[in-house]
Write a protein that binds this DNA or RNA. Structure first.
Length: 602
DNA sequence: ACGCTCGCATCAGGTGGGAAACGG
DNA sequence: CCGTTTCCCACCTGATGCGAGCGT
């Protein structure tokens, strides 16, 4: 582990230094797993795995970063009794269940590969716009094998949920995750073959229960969990070029509590209700036929994203989570209480005509509804009338949020460079990477993004949740329908070299994510390659969002996500990105002007 | 005539809510 | 008794198939 030890040692201190106001009682303060006990004690015993996600930043800089309880959140509990997890777990990746093969079978342990030494100043190598972006990646190490860079595409959405302690429904037949895991990968060998899979491991040794409006521990976790814990991406194995070409979505991954399921183990991950889990991404270099070189740990890399931690439940406990799910998951649209009214609202009640100028939801450009939603919805989500949903102790005070609405608003005005946490392997530098984005409360990070502009032209990865290319953007759903509507049919999934020349067109693919972050997760925003436009949109967006907020609060009018305003927002977001939902081409300046104009006029 | 695009209808499947069932 | 789990429901999305319209 490169520097893993050193980093881990800073864990507790950093945590303490973390800005308390940024902590979410639900996920941090009350989270036993969040305490340093795991870091300090767990580390000693290889029972606990504490990803070195904490940087050695000074308290000043670390505080803001603590917005996301990385430290505790990144902890992964490894039941001593879980034989499937090798003892070598210490500061390393957890070995996949024995059942997993071929890549994991027989492995003694996963390498604690140093996952990208992404320093605040070199998060992403500038994208040149020509040739292969990959070629420009500066590997943190000069050792054998390339170190992958993994980015959680829909991180903003995850953060939103994480603030309230994410819950995932598990059912006998299996329930998809929402938000689902979606990554962008860079730094792989273009021609080498890799298996990409997600493993869901216990995040802590506790059994949880929702009491008094928050999650509290309740005894010990059942370590005797059995069943599949690994979900291998259906496209595995495949070339590095393939994996880097577009988002790697795990939207089909299902969670179940049915240990007996064997037929669909490939799609189901067996979990236990009321236990906290940490998804972990593994990238294993394999031979062309999918056989892993068990003798080379360097070829295995793991990544943890603490914000993706969740508690498995059979029924939602926290209404905040429920509302977030409803607000962001298109399949739950039917539960949006103002779903009808939002579309039937009088024309005059609209801030601006929708693109189609139709009052009916389905007549509104679908993309508008989805794409936009995330862009500003967050701000509404946390500002919904309190009586809208809460009627029981399950309701969690808004204070549970890491940031108060005000804080979030403020944050939304700042730049935030999306960075993916890396760190799974207990690599140290990952911390820096992760935290950097949040540095200064998202205020100061304005880093050029280049790499993740890796192609995202199609949506196969997220064919179902079309957000595909822009999943990121809208926290997961934003880009949906419209984007894929006229998008070229998905290319067949097959290993093939990633056209280096293909990057340019997608150079801004990740951009949407930024947009999402503007309103999302407390106003996170990333600066893509085009800082200027984004900044502008952000500013206006913020302005608009304020108006929307007022509107919603006072009038309880049209829903944020579906209102014409949203459409505009979406358009704006789209326009601001190369991945315009209406075309693969970069938005025309004209279009941009129009969008900006909208904000200006409102 | 042929091929392509578009719109509509249909169907499979995903979603949370709520009530009933289950179990400690 | 209470907390948890299961099942069913209405609603929604997305994929697919089909036919109409249009251009070559």
């Amino acid at each position: 582990m490169l520097g893993g030890e050193g980093e881990s040692n800073t864990f507790s201190s950093t945590k303490e230094a973390a800005d308390e106001r940024c902590k979410s009682p639900a996920v941090d303060g009350d989270d036993p797993a969040a305490g340093s006990r795991y870091a300090e004690h767990g580390m000693g015993a290889d029972r606990y795995y504490i990803p070195p996600t904490v940087s050695k930043q000074s308290p000043e800089t670390a505080s803001p970063c603590s917005f996301i309880p990385y430290n505790p959140g990144g902890a992964v509990y490894t039941p001593a009794s879980a034989g499937r997890y090798p003892s070598s777990l210490h500061l390393s990746s957890v070995l996949p269940p024995a059942g997993f093969s071929p890549s994991a079978a027989g492995r003694s342990h996963f390498s604690s590969a140093y996952q990208l030494g992404q320093s605040p100043g070199c998060i992403y190598p500038p994208y040149t716009g020509s040739g292969s972006a990959l070629g420009n990646i500066s590997l943190p190490t000069g050792g054998p094998g390339m170190r992958a860079q993994v980015y959680l595409c829909n991180r903003p959405l995850w953060l939103k949920f994480h603030r309230h302690q994410t819950e995932m429904i598990i059912t006998k037949q299996g329930r998809r995750m929402f938000p689902f895991l979606s990554f962008n990968i860079a730094g792989l060998n273009l021609t080498a073959h890799y298996n990409v899979f997600v493993e869901v491991v216990l995040a802590d040794p506790n059994h949880w229960r929702f009491q008094g409006g928050k999650w509290v521990t309740c005894g010990k976790a059942d370590n005797s969990s059995q069943g599949n814990k690994v979900y291998i991406h259906p496209e595995s194995p495949n070339t590095g070029a393939h994996w880097m070409r577009q988002e790697i979505s795990f939207s089909k991954l299902k969670l179940t509590n049915n240990k007996g399921t064997s037929h669909s183990t490939s799609q189901m991950v067996v979990l236990q209700s009321l236990h906290k889990y940490q998804p972990r991404l593994h990238i294993v270099e394999v031979t062309e036929d999918g056989v892993e070189d068990i003798g080379n740990d360097v070829k295995t890399q793991s990544f943890n994203f603490p914000e993706t931690q969740f508690i498995a439940v059979t029924a939602y406990q926290n209404t905040d989570i429920t509302q977030l799910k409803i607000d962001h998951n298109p399949f739950a649209k039917g539960f949006r209480d103002n779903y009808d009214s939002m579309y039937t609202a009088p024309e005059h009640d609209r801030l601006t005509p929708s693109p189609t100028d139709s009052p009916r939801a389905h007549q509104i450009v679908p993309s508008a509804r989805y794409t936009m939603q995330p862009l500003f919805q967050d701000q509404f989500v946390n500002n919904l009338p309190q009586n809208r949903f809460y009627n029981s102790e399950r309701a969690v005070p808004q204070t549970n949020s890491l940031l108060s609405p005000q804080a979030e608003d403020g944050a939304s005005q700042r730049w935030f460079v999306t960075s993916m946490q890396q760190g799974g392997n207990g690599t140290s530098t990952s911390n820096k990477l992760d935290l950097t984005p949040y540095e200064g409360d998202y205020s100061s990070s304005l880093l050029p993004y280049g790499i993740k502009s890796l192609s995202m032209q199609t949506s196969h990865a997220l064919s179902y949740y079309p957000d595909s290319p822009f999943t990121t953007m809208s926290a997961g759903w934003g880009s949906r329908a419209a984007y894929q509507r006229k998008v070229t049919p998905s290319l067949p999934w097959s290993p093939r070299p990633s056209p280096t020349s293909g990057f340019p067109e997608n150079s801004n693919k990740v951009k949407p994510q930024i947009e999402e972050e503007v309103n999302g997760s407390g106003g996170l925003i990333s600066s893509w390659t085009e800082a200027q436009p984004s900044a502008l949109s952000l500013e206006k967006a913020d302005s608009y969002s304020t108006a929307c907020k007022r509107r919603r609060l006072s009038l309880n009018g049209p829903s944020t996500e579906d209102s014409p305003a949203d459409i505009k927002c979406e358009d704006l977001a789209s326009a601001a990105t190369n991945g315009s939902p209406y075309s693969k081409e970069a938005p025309s300046s004209k279009g941009m002007a129009a969008y900006y104009s909208f904000y200006t006029n409102h």
